[in-house]
Design a protein around this nucleic acid. Structure first.
Lengths: 206, 206, 206, 206
DNA sequence: TATGAATGAGGATTCATTCAT
DNA sequence: CATGAATGAATCCTCATTCAT
């Protein structure tokens, strides 16, 4: 059965607030963001937020969770056909970057960078963000483990590989995708794959 | 000529404020930090700050500049003896990480991550941080250029190599050095060098 | 002629709001009470109130008037048979206390105590409450006057007697009837009558 | 040793706030009172309150306690010479009324009437007021007990006598002293004593 | 008629900044 | 120079009131 109109509209309004909040939190940080700016961004007056969220904190958590869910869905998915590690890596990176681009501002500020700026990781506010971050790192690690199992990667510490990969993703794609308008992710993916697999050394240097 | 006592004492007080502000800004972010907390941290009362800085913004900029200067000095220095690229890379990384560790909180939050959290890159406030960030990237790039000149690195885009290196530095050292108490930088440096030069692929995968 | 259905239903809704408002005002005071709580208490949504009342103030005044009317009716009534002063006093007190008990919360807060809490006596809002209070005092005074006329009371100032009686009513019945569950009013009436007529002095002390 | 100037000034400011708050709370009730009005009443700007009190609640409690202390001191005092019950009653009433008159607005609204308007008796906010009220009733009861011991009062329930006395105090003095400008307490005291001891009945009616 | 989402003014509280001491 | 009390603008949040459905 389809949700009644009222319900759909409420969900829509909620989404609008989350979307607006994502932008404002990303740009100004938790403390710098004002409820007024979020509301105006969503096309509402300041009081309206409180019909959907009981506090600024709750808005923040909702934003974080919304993003997390996106990544979670993406991580859990399998490629449509059986792929070798390298192609799986490409497939994974393409999807990861597309996801990151969608909410790139919030993603950069709070998730990719696991920013420690505005809250304790232990605090109730920081929990959802931390959990999201761990999810993502976990996804990288699972992927790397397959490379090790297939013998495509040199024996090594999976967490180290996972972190290295995440570092390359950040510096070789998100950073630049963030500056200026977003472009295609293809070239960035190739750069990441190349660096991750072979590094920068000349062949004779090996 | 030596500065008179008055002047020295003033510089000392300024430093105390910058030091305290570094900690508070790092932990709470720009908006979360209060002048009162900074002042108390420096052993002064809130009004005293304004004898040394004209506003909160100016304190922030002073903190950023203070950190930048440290990096700048480090970047400009040459190794004591002539070194090949790989050893020069090691020497550089050791010094860079030590520098980052000294002010790791502020460094992570505002510089290494080039955080977009609390201000616009275009704003007067963001400028010094952005400039500092560019300084660091520039240092990486000069270094990488030497590797290309020496033929140790495969021909490639220097900015890409520089960014890749910076990404590895972040993910393979700073992230972990930040968590828990700081330890020796040696192992982190080796991991970074290894990944940067050879990547993760098994030899036969090349 | 009987009012048409529509009208009767409207009157019913109005009563429901007044009833609910009585409770909420009593418990939270004028400022503490919210239209939402009143509406929910009456089984309506907040917007509905405004079809029956034009503002919060008007609801409050309606509540006060509703209570006043009750007392007014009670005051105006004559005992079924001719009674001497003391029995008339008893008869009067029983009915007065029963009335007070019915809406004891609002009564205590706003009427019995003539609370000066929430509005000026001069304000438009306070007028009906003040008038109600005066009504009640007037009733006491008429009663006392009969006692003087009958020679049952020592010659004295009727207003003083009336106020004294009202004070005893408050402290010897309402205060305690308010605390815990309401019980029978009989004993309280006897205490009041006894104190009012003879005071506390031992006979030989007179 | 005398308190240093700073300290005295701080105590003075605190008192000013309490004094102003007493008036505003009395007139508007807890919810109706605004921090701004309190601050302006004390001759300060709204932010200043928070140097002396951490919240509106704390201001309220401070006001209640301030009043309580006055009554407590008055209750604890003994008449300068040994007095019989009736004179002791007079002495007590004079002092009680003078005390009540000093802060008559707050006293009436929150103490004498033990208003249940704005908070639960159980709540942290209501506690000090309730305690104060009990203190006062306790004082009345101790007094009445002496009258019983001396045989001046007819045997009876001390709490009933105490409550009756308190009711007469309210209705025969405070109520009227509150309306218009305060006058001398003497006549009110005589009315209370007369009513409390002998009631209103004519001699032959006993 | 009733609903409940939306508005926007208002209130508690915080904090950068000023200034008399 | 340093202090810390005072200011007042800004922020989160509440709630009386309106209005489209």
């Amino acid at each position: 059965m389809i949700a009644p109109r009222k319900e759909r509209e409420a969900a829509l309004a909620r989404s609008a607030f989350i979307e607006a909040a994502m932008t404002v939190f990303s740009r100004k940080g938790y403390h710098g963001a004002t409820m007024d700016e979020i509301a105006r961004g969503a096309g509402y007056s300041p009081g309206a937020i409180y019909r959907y969220f009981s506090s600024k904190d709750e808005v923040f958590v909702a934003v974080a969770q919304s993003i997390c869910e996106g990544f979670h869905r993406q991580m859990a998915e399998e490629p449509p056909v059986s792929l070798g590690f390298v192609d799986r890596l490409r497939w994974f990176l393409v999807r990861h970057l597309e996801q990151a681009l969608q909410h790139r501002e919030f993603f950069m500020a709070f998730v990719a960078y696991n920013s420690t700026l505005e809250w304790d990781h232990q605090s109730e506010l920081g929990q959802p963000v931390t959990r999201c971050h761990e999810d993502i790192v976990g996804g990288f690690q699972d992927l790397v483990q397959r490379g090790l199992d297939e013998g495509v990667l040199r024996p090594g510490d999976p967490p180290v590989y996972a972190r290295a990969l995440k570092g390359l993703v950040r510096s070789l794609s998100i950073d630049e995708l963030f500056i200026g308008e977003p472009g295609p992710v293809g070239p960035a993916v190739e750069r990441i794959v190349e660096m991750f697999l072979h590094g920068a050394a000349a062949p004779e240097a090996g």
